[in-house]
Nucleic acid binder design. Structure first.
Lengths: 143, 143
DNA sequence: CTTGACCCTACCATGATGGGAAGGACTATC
DNA sequence: GATAGTCCTTCCCATCATGGTAGGGTCAAG
């Protein structure tokens, strides 16, 4: 299997396969006489592992740890679970952060009539800092 | 006001103020004879506007549009509202994406007993692709 | 033997931010 | 005035994962 076939089979682009090799995430692949990289099923499986981990939002740094555990037949599942839970925690933090942004924006958008007139509580808030949404005297403000 | 004071007053770091100037997001500040940048209240207000927009997740590209509307006294609030709703939509998409990751991970973590034994449905899933969580025959698999 | 599809390396770009170095400017204290 | 410390300036580098491009080699089918 050359890199293109491995890419198709694993869902990781050829570009990224080379990148992962260059950073040491995966070992250097074998080469043909012409210098083409060659991949076996086991390497494709490792690439799929990486792809799936990325799809779950793990940063490459954590995938390194996951791969080490994957290879280690005497691993403790507690270690894997810990990594997963850390990732869940990180996702929860980001979700909460974005939810807060969304709620604020939704609140502002709800207060904006969205017509042809220039008065806009959204701009008023952005220009004056949080908590001024209800100050109608400021809704006309620009710079 | 020099750049340090403007940074404190606006919540935007001096580093970022220079960056915004270099990319044209804000006009070039005036200078003292010695070459120090000088900022007036109105410029600090613009920086606060940018800061607040960033806090709501707007990319700088969109902030450019928001700033243009802010300056335009004959703007239509509908244009502002549209930008806000696009941003809300983008946030919703990202939240849903991360929520899906989290749910999958939570499901896998729940299935992992997390003890000293190597058997781990999380690794099994990562190694074999989605949907194999219940295949107990595979939970021991490594590379 | 040509053509097209693939592979190789090496470099550049992203987006928003921080870090740091080298050198000049201002301010407060002695 | 001198000196120390803090600020400013510009310029370069790093992040993180990914894509793009350019220039050149390889392979397989016609």
């Amino acid at each position: 299997m050359n890199i293109g076939e491995a890419a198709k089979a694993s869902g990781v682009s050829a570009k990224m396969i080379r990148y992962y090799e260059s950073t040491g995430l995966i070992p250097a692949a074998g080469r043909t006489d012409a210098g083409y990289r060659v991949y076996s099923d086991i390497e494709v499986q490792m690439l799929r592992f990486i792809r799936r981990s990325r799809d779950l939002g793990f940063p490459v740094e954590k995938i390194e740890e996951l791969l080490a555990l994957w290879r280690d037949r005497s691993r403790q599942s507690a270690d894997v679970k810990r990594l997963a839970q850390e990732q869940i925690g990180g996702l929860e933090r980001k979700i909460a952060e974005m939810q807060a942004m969304k709620d604020t924006l939704q609140h502002l958008a709800d207060a904006c009539c969205g017509d042809h007139r220039p008065d806009c509580p959204i701009l008023a808030d952005l220009g004056n800092g949080p908590g001024t949404t209800n100050n109608r005297a400021l809704t006309r403000f620009g710079p």
